[in-house]
């Protein structure tokens, strides 16, 4: 149908962003393609190296799913920050990723974990790296006839720890600024893998590669890790957006604080996970 109608059609997932835009006459389409009865687009499955989550899987389902909690904990952590439970009952992972709101949680998680998006059209199915998928605010590299059908979130090897931190005006609001962080250690407690993705600072989720590199080789806890420094490094040179809720300078300064807190929490959890590993 997308191939047939092109730009005149829009897929309708959970409708938590699209429907308000239609109601406010900010967007208009000749055709809405309702995905809500496509059972094959829902569900969480374990694929060996990670999770494959159907695009129409509701956020509430993801937040409560035991596979997600054990294999992609960052996704579960981020879910509690999405809107309110009524929104999470309707909202879907595919809708959230395809909508690409710069302040949304799932795109940042996808960027941090290095998720891949399964994208289908009449021409076939392809896998896209999250980094290639998000192009800017509400902009993705999806072609007009393509639909996100699933997202694949890789599982990180233990010991690893994750944290999702954000600051919002109110419970459930879009983040003024937020960070999704993953930290992987070796058995000596030295950070060997690090991932920091920020939301609310740019159009697309921002990977803070310099800060990530700076984390590598640090002791996760009790060593030379200076979280505040990592935070500053993460935001160095960034020019976050300015809006009615927060200035660019707020986002830059507080973004550094949020990254620092998330890095500290993720590192602590990584150490905890290694201890749990020893117990077993």
């Amino acid at each position: 149908m997308l191939a047939e109608y092109g730009d005149e059609a829009k897929p309708l997932a959970g409708g938590q962003s699209l429907v308000p835009m239609l109601a406010m006459r900010l967007a208009r389409f000749d055709h809405l393609i309702d995905l809500n009865n496509l059972g094959e687009l829902t569900g969480v499955e374990h694929t060996g190296d990670g999770l494959r989550i159907g695009a129409m899987t509701r956020q509430a389902t993801i937040g409560a799913d035991p596979l997600v909690a054990s294999h992609a904990p960052l996704l579960a952590m981020a879910t509690t920050h999405i809107g309110h439970f009524q929104i999470r009952n309707r909202g879907t992972v595919g809708g959230s990723l395809a909508h690409a709101d710069p302040a949304a949680e799932y795109p940042a998680v996808a960027a941090a974990l290095g998720a891949k998006l399964e994208v289908a059209s009449v021409r076939g199915t392809r896998l896209m790296e999250a980094a290639d998928f998000f192009e800017g605010a509400f902009a993705t590299s999806l072609d007009g006839d393509e639909l996100v059908v699933a997202a694949r979130f890789p599982t990180w090897d233990d010991p690893s720890g994750f944290a999702f931190e954000e600051v919002a005006r109110r419970e459930g609001d879009f983040a003024l600024v937020g960070a999704a962080v993953g930290v992987g250690m070796d058995t000596a407690g030295i950070i060997r893998r690090a991932s920091i993705a920020m939301l609310g600072v740019g159009g697309a989720p921002v990977r803070c590669t310099e800060a990530e590199t700076a984390l590598l080789g640090c002791m996760a806890v009790g060593g030379d890790l200076d979280e505040a420094d990592i935070g500053r490094l993460a935001l160095a040179g960034s020019e976050p957006t300015d809006d009615i809720h927060a200035s660019s300078s707020y986002r830059r300064r507080v973004g550094a604080v949020i990254v620092a807190r998330a890095v500290a929490a993720a590192a602590r959890r990584a150490v905890e996970s290694s201890r749990e590993g020893c117990d077993v």
Binding site: M24, R169, R170, E171, G172, D173, F174, I244, H245
Partner: peptide
């Protein structure tokens, strides 16, 4: 702490939805 309906210099209201006009909710 929360509510504010400012105008920009041209007289455009900047809070015309409940996304931008921030009311305290039960959580606050």
């Amino acid at each position: 702490l929360y509510e504010w309906a400012p105008y920009d210099a041209d007289g455009n209201p900047r809070a015309t939805t409940l996304l931008d006009y921030v009311m305290p909710t039960a959580a606050e």
